[in-house]
């Protein structure tokens, strides 16, 4: 996870998404402990209040939960939940911008379909 104070996204949002990515990739499995606020703040040189703001978003969405006096843990079912959320965002985040850029470059719908097919083939 990379935190960058210069880019447009607020830091607490980057913290939230960075931990989500780590959960999705399996770096933080369900029911495992995630780093503490102090560890996150020190590691990324951010204000603990900012780290807490990011973590609280994850707590509100039932992605992580706090165990009093122990730390924070990934909720059971968090991976599925995150995948659902991301699938919902997929169109807005990727498809609309893809189409917009394609129109700018005058790439046809068929060309795009071909490229997508090629992308899937190259994966294997």
């Amino acid at each position: 996870m990379i935190i960058n104070a210069e880019i447009d996204k607020p830091i607490f949002q980057q913290i939230k998404e960075g931990i989500e990515d780590a959960i999705l990739s399996g770096a933080f499995p369900e029911e495992s402990q995630i780093p503490s606020i102090t560890e996150i703040s020190v590691n990324y040189k951010i204000n603990p209040a900012t780290a807490l703001k990011g973590i609280n978003l994850l707590v509100e969405n039932n992605i992580v939960y706090k165990k009093r006096g122990v730390g924070m843990f990934v909720c059971e079912g968090a991976v599925n939940k995150l995948m659902e959320n991301r699938k919902n965002d997929f169109y807005d985040k990727f498809v609309s911008s893809l189409v917009l850029e394609a129109k700018r470059l005058k790439i046809s719908e068929n060309d795009i379909k071909n490229m997508i097919e090629r992308g899937f083939k190259d994966e294997h």
Partner: peptide, 13 residues
């Protein structure tokens, strides 16, 4: 880098 980290660690605790 070391100083910033020590400062944040102290502040966080």
């Amino acid at each position: 880098e070391l100083f910033y980290k020590l400062l944040i660690e102290k502040y966080s605790k």
